[in-house]
Amino acid sequence: MARLNAQNVERAKAVIRRYPRERSATIPLLHLAQEQDGYITPEAMEHIGELVGATAAEVQGVATFYEMFKHEPVGTYLIGVCTNLSCMILGAEQVLEHTEKVLGIKAGSTTVDGMFTIEEMQCLAACGGAPCLQVNYRYFENVTDERVDGIVDALRNGRDPEGQSIPPHGTLSNITLPAPTTPADRERPEEIHPAPQGVES
């Protein structure tokens, strides 16, 4: 399956309705496609183009620009180790090396069982908890070799690492965002002064 399925087309239409221009939904729809297939397929990009009024090439241009979009299968758990400055000076290169050793793969590759991918990440905005890593974009701060062992072991055995629930890579939040209540391209908003019925206090 590579085009968006019927259920996801409905979700896609709800997303598109939040924006004044359909094309603004391109990135959210790519996330949707990635949740469905695990990565971004050419068919999905073509389908998204049809939904937002862009060519497949334009959608591909977007999908290849942003780093979260993958163009080949990745592991169920994407382990991203930050090696930016604050993390590097507090041992991130060792953490990355240890993670590679534990999983027997290099950063940028996936274990043969399809369970883990390692990625070297740029600054993850967790510098106060350096060195840090993410599993499917969930944070683990002040990590050590021992904690990497524990996280990997828990994931391998179907347990939540350190009590943190980690859905498979690509899974989107199950929160349904409210539909807009105002027209997308309305003109100057209503003036409420003097207030028609006064503001509640």
């Binding site: 780093e67 965002l177 908003p189 409420i192 509640e200």
Partner: peptide
């Protein structure tokens, strides 16, 4: 979701007659 439900976002916010929608947009790494 909660702010919409309690009338802090959306239509006729806090009974004032003023309305606006807030859209959460998810980036993708850049």
């Amino acid at each position: 979701v909660d702010a919409y439900a309690k009338g802090y976002v959306g239509s006729n916010i806090m009974g004032s007659g003023w309305s606006i929608d807030v859209v959460l947009h998810w980036g993708a790494g850049a």
